[in-house]
Design a protein around this nucleic acid. Structure first.
Lengths: 221, 221
DNA sequence: GATTGTGAATAGATTCACAGCT
DNA sequence: AGCTGTGAATCTATTCACAATC
């Protein structure tokens, strides 16, 4: 009988390098991880793609395809082991280690994020919270002292920051993005309503609230 | 010479009903609108798909395809008229009229949204901000008095609310979603990290910060 | 008997290449 | 000459259907 937990690469095809996996797939992996955590909390140890799909409104085939892309995670005729699959997804998603992260902009959104990420068991370590406004500098938010923006580059370099979260007004987004990238950040999570220009090695993910609302607006007619 | 601004349906194909347009396309329309507003502010009156694409890192062909889906918006050999195209996109995206909207949850994210939407020229009228916590009820945020959650259904019904924004903890999301839908909301913008179950007529858009971060984490390896 | 993993089939989205206006 | 609008071609993603496995 085969054991759980031993990474088992797929028969012949090579492990896909992260750059040839689509963001759509990655998002789904993230969703699956959520679902597995939930099942884990409920003490459920085994689950089939069918059950996962029904419970969380997903597609069973797609779950299997997505997972099979990265190895043989399940056992035929049986299903998936919840704890071990969860652990493997966490590693896959880079959650095995802490990612040093900074938040630029201590306004409403920046504050919300600092509290949200500071609290939970998130694997993203906030090592700096910055703002340009002297009023805000020095304030304490979620256990972090707000630092002046001119210290940004130094902190990013010193702490080997990987992810920069931009929660600044649209007009300031590109310049702060440039500063982050110049100092070594490799990923940007952008809440400003602008399309950022970056070199191709840097990955940008923009979360635009107005665009989300406008999408809903369209379908309301 | 043809005039700008007169809606001109495509030659033979019928105007697509909103339900057979993909959310991907709608998001891009929203992006185009952003870009046009920006150009408008700069006093630019005419633009070609090529120019738009270069300036905002989009695909010229895709811009044309997307726009052509809804009518003949440009003039061959010339390009697009910025103000009129902007106006037409606004109508298309349902921004011609105000959408009554409520925010459920007056924590960090709810507050950030209330301020953000209360301020700008957004076409989404926040007609209510709700929270369960008696501490928060009665507080004033962005000119709105926080109301107790038990008033939610009545307000949604009375104000004909179309969009409900869920900024509550994961555990409370589904029940509040159900309340919104039962009272008549047709679209939900969900910030809670759960997959909501709804009847098919209701459109849900989930914005999940952790999933966005995990996507970046994956590509960091 | 049940369920995974996967090649083949389908559906969907993007890009190409050019006809058709201005 | 320049640019839009669009059918055809390509690329990508999802679903089907079933062989392999437990």
């Amino acid at each position: 009988m085969r054991q759980w937990g031993l990474p088992q690469p797929p028969a012949d095809s090579p492990m896909p390098s992260s750059s040839d996996v689509s963001p759509l797939t990655v998002n789904r992996l993230s969703v699956y991880l959520r679902c597995l955590r939930r099942l884990g909390e409920e003490g459920i140890e085994r689950v089939s793609s069918q059950q996962l799909a029904q419970r969380f409104q997903l597609s069973a085939t797609q779950i299997r395809k997505d997972l099979a892309r990265f190895g043989e995670f399940g056992i035929r005729g049986v299903g998936y082991d919840v704890p071990s699959l969860r652990a493997r997804l966490e590693v896959l998603l880079g959650l095995g280690r802490l990612h040093p992260t900074v938040i630029v902009g201590a306004g409403n959104i920046g504050t919300a994020l600092a509290r949200f990420l500071g609290a939970g068991g998130a694997r993203f370590a906030i090592v700096g919270l910055f703002d340009k406004d002297p009023e805000r500098v020095g304030q304490e938010i979620a256990g972090l002292r707000v630092r002046p923006s001119h210290e940004l580059a130094a902190v990013v370099r010193r702490e080997q920051v990987e992810i920069g979260i931009l929660a600044v007004p649209a007009a300031a987004a590109q310049e702060n993005c440039d500063a982050l990238v110049a100092a070594g950040a490799r990923s940007i999570l952008n809440f400003a309503p602008v399309r950022l220009a970056v070199v191709p090695e840097v990955r940008v993910k923009t979360v635009d609230l107005l665009i989300s609302l406008e999408e809903l607006g369209f379908f309301l007619g």
